[in-house]
């Protein structure tokens, strides 16, 4: 445990070093063998580069020849235009209550898959947080130094005063309207996260931290994931595709918002951990 702690603080590059020691090298390296090694390495790198180029030319040839033999692009009789599409488009509105078939499909027919994706995002954010834990003090010093020497960009701030509200409203619109128009959880959450990043770049992370504290951030990302799990469980328990269209629409919309919350907090979290190592 203490070795993990050390690794998190960046003191020790390898927490398992105590368990794994390098085998002692057998012969003493002389200058001659070292020069030999270098020559060997250079030769190997040359052969490696040639092999890589040849491999990639071969890959291009194979793939392009394969691509030319594919069924023609965008023609109606393609093998991809099959009964699955007809089933999805034909009964999506009745079964999921979503007019946007893409949103309805990823939240209903492929709901478990999307839940897995949300978990991937959540875990990726946790990993980034752990990895950049060690850089927190250095980042804090850097931020203080850069704040002292360079004031905020006036042009950027003025443009962002106009742009950020528009982007936020657009993001909220496509998040809440995702089942009726293009958009949905992933797009809306991504736009909202980008708007928050823009705001933080223009006015400084402290302004964001006023309303988006560590506690709020944790609550948002965990409650998003939990909301998804619980509501999707309820949805499946009630009969999944068989339930009434109006109820399905409400459930899909709330699940959509939950995905949006997870995506938004992940996107802003990446930015925050990269700049400050904390929120």
């Amino acid at each position: 445990m203490s070795s993990l702690r050390k690794w998190l603080d960046g003191e020790d590059a390898y927490p398992l070093r105590a368990e794994w020691t390098a085998p002692p090298s057998k012969k003493k390296r002389t200058r001659k063998t070292r020069a030999d090694d270098r020559r060997q390495l250079e030769g190997f790198l040359r052969v490696y580069a040639v092999c890589a180029v040849v491999l990639c030319i071969g890959l291009i040839l194979c793939l392009v020849l394969g691509a030319l033999r594919l069924p023609a692009f965008a023609s109606p009789g393609n093998p991809t235009d099959n009964e699955v599409v007809r089933r999805y488009v034909g009964s999506a509105e009745a079964e999921t209550g979503a007019e946007n078939v893409v949103a309805g499909m990823i939240l209903n027919y492929r709901g478990f898959d999307t839940f897995g994706e949300s978990c991937v995002l959540f875990v990726a954010l946790c990993c980034v947080e752990l990895l950049l834990w060690a850089t927190k003090p250095a980042l804090r010093e850097e931020a203080a130094a850069s704040r002292k020497e360079a004031p905020r960009d006036a042009i950027l701030a003025r443009v962002c005063t106009l742009a950020v509200p528009c982007v936020l409203v657009y993001g909220l619109c496509i998040l809440f309207n995702g089942h009726l128009s293009p958009g949905g959880g992933f797009s809306g959450g991504a736009v909202l996260g980008a708007a928050l990043i823009l705001f933080a770049v223009a006015f400084g992370g402290e302004r964001v931290r006023r309303f988006f504290t560590q506690r709020v951030f944790d609550a948002v990302r965990i409650s998003g994931l939990l909301l998804y799990a619980v509501l999707f469980g309820v949805y499946v328990y009630l009969g999944a595709n068989g339930i009434e269209s109006g109820l399905a629409r409400v459930l899909v919309q709330i699940i959509d918002v939950a995905v949006g919350l997870v995506v938004m907090s992940t996107m802003y979290g990446f930015y925050a951990f990269y700049t400050k190592g904390e929120l």
Binding site: T80, V89, V101, V102, I106, V128, A190, T266
Partner: peptide, 24 residues
């Protein structure tokens, strides 16, 4: 066909998180 769009939509977001992890 809505199926590829659904597949790619989730793929884009996951590719971002993978690159964020590798950059860290």
């Amino acid at each position: 066909n809505p199926i590829p769009a659904g597949l790619v939509l989730t793929g884009i977001v996951v590719s971002v998180s993978v690159s964020a992890f590798s950059l860290a």
